[in-house]
Design a protein around this nucleic acid. Sequence first.
DNA 1: TCTGGGGTCCTAGGACCC
DNA 2: TCTGGGGTCCTAGGACCC
Length: 432
Amino acid sequence: MYALVDCNNFYVSCERVFQPRLDGRPVVVLSNNDGCLIARSAEAKALGLRMGDPYFQVKPLLEQHHVTVFSSNYALYGDMSRRVMWYLGQVAPAVEVYSIDEAFLDLHGLVPFVVESLDAYARTVRANVLARTGIPTCVGIAPTKTLAKLANRLAKKLPALGGVLHLDSEDRRRWALEQVAVEDVWGIGRQYATQLHAAGITTAAALAGCTEAYARRHLGGVVGARLVRELRGYPCLGLAPSEDGTLARRSLCCSRTFGRPLSAFPDVTGAVSAFASRAAEKLRRQDGAAHLLTVFLGKSRYGLEPPPYSCSTTLTLPVATSDTVELVRYARAALKKLWQPGKRYTNAGVVFDGLEPAGQAQLGLFEAAPVSEKRARLMAELDALNRRFGKGTVRLAATVLAPGQSVAPWEGQAQWRTPQYTTRLEDLLLVG
DNA sequence: TCTGGGGTCCTAGGACCC
DNA sequence: TCTGGGGTCCTAGGACCC
């Protein structure tokens, strides 16, 4: 048995923990750069606001209904997420942190010890997460991960279920499959949904009934075959557990849309240097080193200009590294190859691939060990200082602002950002 | 017409997820 | 004026290897 624990409207819930007066009122959270809606409270959903709606388009509606608007505050959400996941780790035999607001629990080892029922267990978990973190959740339980996802969706949709649905019989499984539209099945996106509808397959039940040959041909080969089997109740996907809750990534990226389009090489170099530097920090946090480095530049997809909207170049590094100085140097070299004068670039990013555990890299034939050791110590010091005194306290000259600049030219809007209540002493909420 | 078989790695692209 | 930022996995073709 697998359980999926999913936080309800997670970012909105995080903001509400610190502003309870917002309970029952419409609230939305915006993406980076205050670009579009990425989280909505139930009340905001009821107003017809959709995921991904551009902020400037829905602004009149938001004002008309006095919707509270927040810029995203990932320091806060990340920390709240860690608290929820930590608790789940205490009460389940194995946990896969699937996203910032969702976790799969493997309940197989637990079943013999549950005194009452898995339903009761799920209700207790829900109540305790709420009591300890203030975050409401829903729980779906089923024999496969795909069915647990589906059960979770129904638990959210049907208030009568009290936030928990356990598909513990053939009848319940069949009933649940009938309730869910095919486009709402985990693994069915826009493309597949269109195809399936055209083929007359409109519910999860119909999808579960299609042949394996059909799934293989039309739903991405083995991925589709697995999906259909999972819906039928045969597990094909296991847990991807993470010992300390932080999964080692296979690739890692830092990218941003600029506050305004940029055409000046020094501005974009500054941005790319900063992104490479941030990505290098992430890399060291998972004790990794990167073998491949990609830099990409993007143009607006919303104007009159035809595609392509982005271009990229990938460098293979002679030795995998996590050294900020080196990675920034490579990133700048890659950017130079890519750069076309006169273009208006709207976003950029740095991607690290080919990740391996740090320290595994062999020494180059002519590389003197002491240099790389010294550099590793320098990076460790830099990370420690930034952890202690705040992000960006110590950084490369390449990412420091020019004299006279108060914010980097690539920095975007965040007009309604709440404080880092849980991760910055200065931002601690004072109750008087 | 016919050309060995079995690997790996790389790149590009496509689909999906939250 | 203003449209996010992360990730995953799979496929297919070509180069290259023995």
